[in-house]
Design a protein around this nucleic acid. Structure first.
Length: 708
DNA sequence: GTGCCTCGAGTTCC
DNA sequence: CTCGAGGCAC
């Protein structure tokens, strides 16, 4: 059996049966591993199966939905917890801090849905529990998988621990065949105090706050310890479902409660932003008496059909927002201001603080953004902190933005030591001595050294091995730092990673004989590198670290050019500002001139170009995956929307068209297949007529895609 | 030119 | 997680 024969050779039918076969093998291996604790196959073989499964899925993404196992494919690692890919991503929420942001949220939702301010729109408001989120998968009414949120994409499997939590039912009666219940694991304040007292008595570590205690308790390798911890659970959402729970958020919560899950009794139905704000004020007033920590209120559009229409941005749903309570503040001394150099050369000032506890966490660093922020004004020159600047030695007020990132809110001028002067941004890179320049209209100062600057080179390499790029296991930030400075076996460019094993073999002192490395870990590292020699086009483009090219834009480029050969040829032939290759590039919807120029410039810079060529020579670059299924009438077609759309917003129309496999462009060209013109269509309609492009109105479009 | 919506880049602590 | 700014519609 050849697990590694080419995925690219499979046709769709073969892929479907192969997925089913692999799913069977993986399921059997999972059962053996989790239940009997006696694996039938080696970890390496399991990994090979899993990789092949993922490769086929990546190539035929629309087959993914056919297989309910997808969410459970997880490799048991050597230590710690196995990972599970969530069948439906666990997203985070956009945050709001002011009442105006809540009314803006309502306005945005209405605009997207095409509702007037007068039309009714129901919301829910529920307390935002300060714990950690957990996804519980039930099949046939039995709890089969519990996974933490992780990065939203992949979480850790904590099923055995979840089973010990009294609030979480082991079985459900009358539930859908498949249901993923999502909610928050938390610890009540009284239980937390008691636990900490007990921990202190027995000389064990105490926890800083209930959330840390809950997180630490859930992530115990020994479920017996979790069982002894007073964890609780509130259900508030769901992931994969074999049948809908209800038509509204409130209805779904009632259904979850009927299935035996605790749901928060303070959840309220609200008929508009004023009611949402009233619910917020009520919860804020009750906060101290609840017995558990909450850090804000979550607002959701109640109607689930509307939630579906609103859909998602890159990382957050459009139909929900978290209104956070004001952050806790603390005063401390600013000891120094240091400079960090990022991968784009940006010089970032970082505050070194006298350690201080803010919201249950000891903070000793804080971001200072840029020189304007330190000087007390924002990018537009508007004063912040009433224009007070920040100087080393100052007495400063610290808070954690979004309860995470430490920032400096204010300065007490009365406490300022005498004889200080305003802090000045260095005009040379502290890492390489190159000039640090601030372009007109830019808020950051950048090191001009490029790849000559060791700090930039290292940061570029860290980006390269990052999770959305090459994601090489065993080669993280720390290892990159070490290899960059290593004289015997250096990694200074991305291509060096892929020659690592061969160079090591030729060295008198082998890596496996060094301190900190063993035979096994070196073998694993080399294998992880080998696994990534084959790389998806979008990952490669993202990994190059071109300014302005993040994950989304890299995927956009990969999808537009399909293959590395086509992309590379076009970028090589292109000149900035003119010519057919340039026109094609800036014609991509969502990609403008600044971004396009950055890509073309990179391919024409000698040093960058040599690094790219040396890298690609080491790789097998996979073409972009085939588009959405070809069974929709607009699949593969290039569509342009113009004029005012009356029954849907432009963003919604675009999202819907893309889901059906169409490419949505911003302007009409000879490559346009269809122009959807609403009232008020101007030059685009004229151009379409000129080019002979089919023009239809909104109703005809809805009929075409089957939206009656 | 203005205003919205996203994305990109940099950041902390566990 | 936030800020700045690119891209696009109006």
């Amino acid at each position: 059996m050849s697990e590694d024969h080419a995925v690219s050779a499979l046709d769709e039918d073969a892929a479907r049966s192969e997925l089913a076969r692999l799913a069977g093998l993986l399921a059997a291996a999972d059962r053996a591993y989790h239940q009997a604790d006696a694996p039938e196959i080696s970890d390496a073989d399991y990994d090979a199966l899993k990789r092949r499964y993922a490769a086929i899925e990546a190539r035929f993404p629309h087959l993914r939905a056919l297989d309910s196992r997808t969410g459970m494919v997880g490799a048991p690692p050597a230590e710690g917890f196995a990972k599970a890919v969530h069948a439906v991503r666990m997203l985070s929420l956009e945050n709001a801090f002011a009442a105006t942001e809540v009314t803006a949220f309502d306005a945005r939702v209405r605009r997207y849905l095409g509702l007037t301010p007068e039309e009714p729109l129901a919301y829910t408001a529920e307390p935002k529990i300060d714990g950690l989120s957990l996804s519980l998968r039930y099949e046939g009414g039995r709890l089969v998988l519990a996974a933490t949120r992780g990065d939203g994409e992949t979480g850790e499997i904590v099923t055995a621990n979840a089973r010990t939590i009294a609030d979480i039912p082991a079985t459900l009666a009358g539930a859908p065949e498949l249901i993923e219940v999502r909610g928050e694991v938390y610890m009540a304040q009284a239980d937390f105090a008691e636990l900490n007292a007990r921990q202190a008595e027995t000389g064990e570590r105490t926890f800083a706050n209930p959330r840390n205690a809950a997180a630490g308790s859930l992530r115990q390798l020994d479920p017996a310890i979790t069982a002894a911890r007073p964890l609780r659970f509130f259900a508030y959402a769901w992931g994969a479902l074999s049948e809908p729970l209800a038509g509204t958020q409130m209805g779904a919560l009632a259904r979850l409660a009927a299935l035996g899950f605790p749901t928060n009794p303070l959840t309220r139905a609200c008929d508009g932003p004023q009611a949402l704000l009233a619910a917020y004020r009520a919860l804020e007033a009750q906060r101290a008496t609840l017995g558990y920590d909450i850090d804000g209120v979550v607002y959701k559009v109640d109607d689930l059909a509307l939630q579906r229409r609103l859909g998602f941005r890159a990382a957050t749903p459009r139909w929900a927002i978290a209104h956070k309570f004001p952050a806790e503040l603390a005063w401390t001394r600013l000891l120094a201001i240091n400079i960090q150099v990022g991968r784009t050369g940006a010089l970032s000032p970082v505050a070194r603080l006298q350690p201080v506890t803010v919201g249950g966490v000891v903070v000793s660093n804080a971001t200072l953004h840029n020189e304007d922020y330190i000087a007390g004004r924002d990018a537009r020159g508007t004063p912040i902190r009433e224009g007070r600047d920040i100087r080393p030695g100052d007495w400063v007020q610290v808070y954690r933005a979004g309860d995470v990132i430490p920032k400096i809110a204010d300065v007490d001028l009365a406490e300022r030591p005498p004889g200080t002067s305003p802090w000045v941004m260095p005009d040379r890179c502290p890492e390489c001595g190159s000039d640090a320049l601030r372009e007109a209209g830019d808020s950051v100062r950048r090191c001009s050294g490029g790849l000559i600057c060791p700090a930039q080179a290292v940061e570029r390499l860290k980006h390269f091995v990052g999770r959305a790029a090459f994601d090489i296991e065993g080669l993280g930030a720390k290892q990159i730092e070490a290899f960059y400075r290593d004289d015997q076996l250096p990694i200074r460019t991305p291509a060096d990673i892929f020659t690592l094993a061969a160079r090591d073999a030729a060295n008198p002192t082998r890596l496996k004989d060094r301190d900190g490395y063993g035979e096994r870990s070196v073998q694993k590292l080399f294998q992880a590198i080998e696994d990534r020699r084959t790389i998806a086009l979008h990952r490669l483009i993202f990994a190059l670290g071109i300014p302005h090219i993040g994950e989304s834009t890299a995927a956009l480029l990969a999808d537009s050019y399909r293959s590395w050969a086509a992309f590379e040829a076009a970028m090589t032939a292109a000149t900035i500002g003119e010519g057919p290759e340039w026109q094609a590039l800036v014609g991509i919807d969502g990609l403008g001139e600044v971004t396009a120029a950055a890509v073309v410039a990179t391919f024409h810079q000698e040093r960058e170009r040599m690094a790219i060529d040396a890298l690609v020579a080491q790789l097998m670059v996979e073409d972009a995956a085939p588009r959405a299924p070809a069974d929709s009438p607009v699949a593969g077609k290039t569509v342009v929307f113009t004029g005012t759309l009356e029954r849907m917003s432009r963003a919604e129309a675009k999202a819907r068209a893309e889901a059906l496999g169409a490419r949505v462009a911003g302007s009409v060209s000879a490559r346009t297949d269809l122009l959807v013109a609403g009232p008020g269509a101007g030059s685009k309609a004229a151009k379409a007529a000129e080019l002979g492009v089919t023009v239809i109105d909104e109703d005809a479009w809805r009929a075409l895609i089957g939206d009656a």
